[in-house]
Design a protein around this nucleic acid. Structure first.
Lengths: 127, 127
DNA sequence: GTTAATACCGAATAAATTTTCGGTTACCGA
DNA sequence: TCGGTAACCGAAAATTTATTCGGTATTAAC
């Protein structure tokens, strides 16, 4: 199951604090491939098939699911024109665009601190 | 298992992109209780027992584990003075402090968009 | 009417993360 | 010596999240 928070058959077992901004934010864009998807859309890959080709690490299935969740939470918008080949495109909503600077900050911090993961890997820690 | 990324017996099954800033950042402070712990420390709760009392939603065990991971990754520093009762305190390192504005941005965004989770919950979505 | 492209979905399984539960060690004071 | 506080740790179980695999529907060119 993914973090769909809509009325679905899935019932969470552990309570969540929906007053906490971090919890909310993580529900909305904290899943494994959501930042990638948002980034891909922003870089102009709007069609599912394009995203599937662009994001190599993920299977199409998980991208479809997380894209759908982003749509349900109002982060992206889907437009589909019947025809051949079927043409679907996703774009960021205003709210979706407002996430980007936050993701950028996270990414920036991570890039600035690559060494944290390296360093620690070298020492043979006694846990 | 938690996201310990140190040489431990646990071997990841799925590959990770350690060049991606988001992946790195999420490994360092993306676990369920890490932002809470960092926030608690910043607010002056430095002793494990204090944090256990402060963060009600989590069991002491998980807080201990994630605190340890924060220590291993150089985000917090542990100081212990022998004596009675045993006194241990954790403080943020410089790198640890540099995370706080990022967490603040995430939290801010979440608080600003509480309605996303509410709204969607009301509509009976057809998935 | 068979094949090919695009965009999905369902269900089982696997993997990762968190929780539960019950320890241990060290020290002090009654 | 027994009880009580602080700070942990190990292992199994439960929960959550992601992956795998195999579908469906539409259109359209050959």
């Amino acid at each position: 199951m993914t973090n769909l928070f809509i009325s679905d058959m899935y019932q969470r077992k552990t309570p969540e604090d929906l007053q906490c901004g971090i919890t909310i934010a993580m529900k909305v864009f904290g899943a494994k491939w959501k930042p990638c998807l948002l980034d891909a859309i922003q870089r102009g890959f709007r069609r599912p098939s394009e995203m599937h080709r662009e994001i190599r690490g993920a299977t199409p299935r998980v991208l479809d699911m997380q894209l759908r969740e982003l749509e349900v939470s109002g982060i992206v918008e889907k437009r589909q024109s019947a025809g051949f080949p079927l043409y679907t495109e996703y774009t960021l909503t205003d709210i979706g665009r407002s996430i980007m600077p936050v993701i950028d900050r996270i990414n920036e911090w991570g890039l600035m601190h690559k060494e944290l993961l390296r360093e620690v890997d070298l020492q043979s820690m006694s846990l």
